[in-house]
């Protein structure tokens, strides 16, 4: 009973947080929805599907999700570290395709890190 109580409490808390996030950031949610659905639709479109590959779609979704949620620089870095570590394990155990996907995400993360770095550059190299 006690466990059920704790669980209920946690679920309530989670629901409230999600609700308040939706209320506070409806625009981001809309953008995320719009973009993700477009991106998911792309590989199914005739002709476009000839060159938009599934791996590219997932790649875009991940990058866009990180942008929408405005993940902080340090968390992006940690995520990069995790991806590298997991990638290493996958390659080590011969699951090369999974390692490659993580490598792609790491590349995307580096792009995000790069863009987050730009505003902090001083103007001394004018």
């Amino acid at each position: 009973m006690k466990l059920q109580k704790i669980l209920n409490k946690r679920i309530n808390h989670l629901e409230n947080s999600l609700f308040s996030w939706i209320v506070k950031t409806p625009r981001q949610l809309f953008r995320l929805f719009l973009f993700s659905s477009t991106v998911l639709f792309l590989p199914k479109m005739p002709y476009v599907n000839l060159f938009v590959q599934k791996s590219f779609v997932f790649f875009l979704i991940l990058i866009f999700a990180l942008l929408v949620y405005k993940v902080k620089f340090k968390y992006l870095l940690r995520l990069g570290g995790i991806f590298t570590l997991l990638g290493m394990l996958f390659v080590l155990f011969g699951i090369y395709e999974a390692g490659e996907i993580l490598g792609n995400y790491l590349y995307g993360l580096t792009i995000l890190l790069f863009f987050q770095l730009i505003p902090s550059v001083d103007n001394n190299h004018k």
């Binding site: 580096t110 790069f114 770095l117 902090s120 001083d122």
Partner: peptide, 13 residues
């Protein structure tokens, strides 16, 4: 060092 790091990162990407 930021501007160089930024440059190296961009070149890498």
């Amino acid at each position: 060092s930021k501007k160089y790091i930024l440059f190296f990162t961009a070149v890498t990407l």
